[in-house]
Design a protein around this nucleic acid. Structure first.
Lengths: 169, 169
DNA sequence: ATTCCGTTTGCAATATATTTCCATCTATGA
DNA sequence: TCATAGATGGAAATATATTGCAAACGGAAT
């Protein structure tokens, strides 16, 4: 098994702290905990998934704070709000260009790092007035867990929030 | 001005009717109207946007019916629920492989048909147990309308539902 | 360490989006 | 036309997200 680099690296932590200082944003324990949780996992969690973990450690944190902190991270450029077909917010602390696999059954979002996919020619959309900033390739399919569960009717691609599960690493 | 093929073509209509017959789904006036509306527009509407139009023509139609019909269309393969970072579902009656431009300011989703983008090599994710079914390239940026409006702070990429507007064709 | 001030938080209320329940109604085949 | 499986409408429940404000906190100056 290949050893993995921790996502909430020293680098990310320093980046966060210096950006906050530049902008006059306070380094609160809530923001630290929320960022650490977001950056420490690989499943692109929803605000509620983060809240559920955070609340065990931080007595009395509010769901509102989680929502607010995540939006703040997006605004200062240390996280992204990612697109997914569930249409609920999911966040990603990795802001480098990479791509996603979304399971059509349970909604989990996994990363793909692939050099070729990072070199797509941008379409010329200036004629339509659109300014392209970035892109990401969104793959859809079925994750290992959902494939191995018997009885999944693939015609029913409706995402089932009740059956969520996560990569165990 | 280039003439455009109507999206709710004879083909789509026949496809819908035959699939419904095969599956024992009733061809109700609600489903017909909802599909016609979805397929007739190019802006990837939310259920509410469809409802707002439909209710003028179909006295007493329920929002619930619109939600249900759209999910049904996805299940039978004649529409897709598309990925987007807003906290609401958007649907697309074009199930062929194509790609999307999403405006980071107003949330509008435009189509891109580009032959090169349709030929990406699928990543080999079978080792991780993921079965890839399809993909779509999600471009983000700013649409012509949002670019031309003065005073947009690009650092604030939060999607603003209040400023929605649509392609006039 | 203490004080001050602007930022952030928690809570409650509100807003928006979606789903569920069930009585009633309708499309469709016999 | 009739029977009936399937669909609808409307209310209510649930899920998701945002806002306003008083109290608490972080960080800089002292």
């Amino acid at each position: 098994m290949k050893k993995r680099e921790p996502i909430f690296s020293k680098f990310k932590k320093n980046e966060f702290e210096s950006i906050c200082r530049e902008r006059g944003l306070a380094l609160t324990i809530q923001r630290r905990a929320i960022l650490a949780e977001l950056a420490g996992r690989r499943d692109h969690p929803t605000p509620d998934q983060i809240y559920d973990v955070i609340k065990e450690r931080l007595e009395g944190v509010s769901r509102t704070t989680v929502y607010r902190a995540l939006e703040t991270f997006v605004c200062i450029g240390i996280a992204r709000k990612i697109s997914n077909p569930e249409a609920k917010a999911r966040y990603d602390a990795d802001t480098s260009r990479h791509h996603h696999l979304t399971c059509l059954h349970c909604g989990i979002v996994l990363d793909i790092h692939d050099g070729d996919l990072n070199k797509l020619k941008l379409p010329n959309e200036s004629e339509r007035g659109f300014e392209v900033i970035d892109y990401s390739v969104a793959f859809t399919g079925f994750c290992g867990h959902c494939r191995s569960m018997g009885g999944i009717d693939r015609a029913v691609t409706k995402i089932n929030p009740g059956s969520s599960h996560y990569e165990t690493s």
